[in-house]
């Protein structure tokens, strides 16, 4: 008799893992294969970072949000259901983490404003934007609901159907938020000083 089949898990190589679907990787992770998580991060980190950046407009905050999203998924690995929707699942968590960052930022800015009002204190305002600053400023003026759809569409390159799944919205709502958001974005950009 040979070794039990379970031991095959421990000799899986990175080369094997990159052949597996996202669902299969989550199942490997549940079975105790941490390399499966590394592979999921490798596959999706770029989309998660860029989507968070388009939403937040700050590279440092985007990195934090993406990290927190992946950690959240790692912590809840036992509860994942393999239904072929990993991307939607991941990007829902990314959007939630980005929203949490936004709330945190607003609280900090409120504190800073209060500090500034006190005599003898000074405080920096706002978040340092990176890259295409006029674009990010224009994005930051959009309603959060429109910004989330735009971030997933252009940051993570998600199809509209996946965005609908991720945000748990009907496809029609996703389309109207996307095109309404893009229209608003153009107006904002046109209103920006050159």
């Amino acid at each position: 008799m040979g070794e039990p089949a379970a031991s095959a898990l421990s000799v899986r190589t990175a080369e094997d893992l990159d052949q597996l679907s996202d669902d299969a990787l989550m199942l490997r992770l549940r079975e105790g294969c941490p390399e499966a998580f590394d592979e999921l991060v490798r596959r999706h980190q770029r989309g998660a970072l860029q989507a968070a950046f388009r939403f937040l407009g700050c590279a440092a905050e985007a990195e934090d949000a993406a990290q927190n999203a992946f950690l959240n998924i790692y912590r809840r690995r036992d509860r994942y259901q393999a239904r072929g929707c990993f991307r939607a699942y991941l990007f829902r968590v990314v959007v939630n983490e980005a929203r949490a960052k936004l709330r945190q930022r607003r609280r900090q800015q409120a504190t800073l404003r209060r500090l500034e009002e006190e005599p003898g204190t000074t405080a920096a305002q706002g978040v340092e934007a990176a890259g295409d600053e006029p674009l990010q400023r224009a994005l930051s003026r959009l309603p959060v609901r429109q910004r989330a759809v735009i971030a997933l569409r252009f940051g993570a390159d998600l199809p509209l159907q996946d965005i609908a799944r991720a945000l748990r919205l009907p496809l029609g709502t996703v389309k109207s938020r996307l095109f309404g958001g893009l229209q608003n974005l153009r107006r904002e950009i046109q209103g920006e000083p050159a």
């Binding site: 991060v41 980190q45 770029r46 985007a62 990176a130 890259g131 295409d132």
Partner: peptide, 19 residues
């Protein structure tokens, strides 16, 4: 412009930090 990758995050690898 929306699709352009943010250079500050382009080569970021989260795997080590996440480990």
């Amino acid at each position: 412009r929306l699709r352009r990758v943010e250079p500050a995050l382009a080569d970021k690898d989260l795997r080590m930090t996440l480990r």
